[in-house]
């Protein structure tokens, strides 16, 4: 992979990578570090992709693994609760803020399937491939996430 090919992929996918990392880590700085690690791996262990879809799936899978590793690190524990509004780089509306806050309040196991399903447009099968979770589990988690969000909204 040439440097220009690498940069092209990076430009094409970095937002998806960063957004997934933000969803996992809820911390802009940590998410940027994770994205850096993802592209470092791509550069050092170049992979050839047949389609952009494959390219994105590979990068998101690596992102998910790196984020999970970061979350397991004792170093990160308790440090991921920064202001979630710092994640976004543009002004967002009140309703968008409320939605972001509600989803970010979900436990990580529910948040990630929600992110991949609703933001990346991934199917249950694709989420299963990216996260390494069984399809049935993904379905259950999406279902529970919806239930939790509904309960959260009703409470508010």
């Amino acid at each position: 992979m040439t440097d220009s090919e690498f940069e092209l992929i990076m430009r094409r996918q970095i937002c998806s990578v960063l957004r997934l990392a933000c969803s996992y880590l809820k911390c802009r700085a940590e998410a940027e570090d994770a994205a850096q690690e993802v592209f470092l791996r791509l550069y050092r262990f170049p992979v050839s992709f047949e389609t952009e879809k494959d390219e994105r799936a590979w990068l998101l899978t690596v992102t998910a693994n790196i984020c999970k590793n970061i979350l397991r690190s004792p170093r990160i524990k308790g440090r991921c609760e920064a202001d979630i509004y710092e994640l976004v780089t543009e002004d967002i509306s009140d309703s968008e803020k409320a939605a972001l806050e509600a989803v970010m309040k979900l436990p990580e196991k529910y948040r990630t399937p929600v992110h991949l399903f609703y933001c990346e447009g991934y199917s249950v099968k694709e989420i299963s491939q990216v996260t390494g979770i069984k399809e049935s589990t993904v379905r259950t988690r999406l279902q529970r996430a919806r239930k939790l969000l509904r309960a959260d909204m009703e409470r508010d």
């Binding site: 937002c15 960063l18 780089t89 543009e90 803020k97 939605a99 972001l100 989803v103 929600v114 609703y118």
Partner: peptide
């Protein structure tokens, strides 16, 4: 809520 969430997430960009 998911549409709103998606809109918010789409505003996570990189400089």
């Amino acid at each position: 809520i998911f549409d709103e969430y998606k809109n918010a997430v789409n505003k996570i960009n990189i400089s």
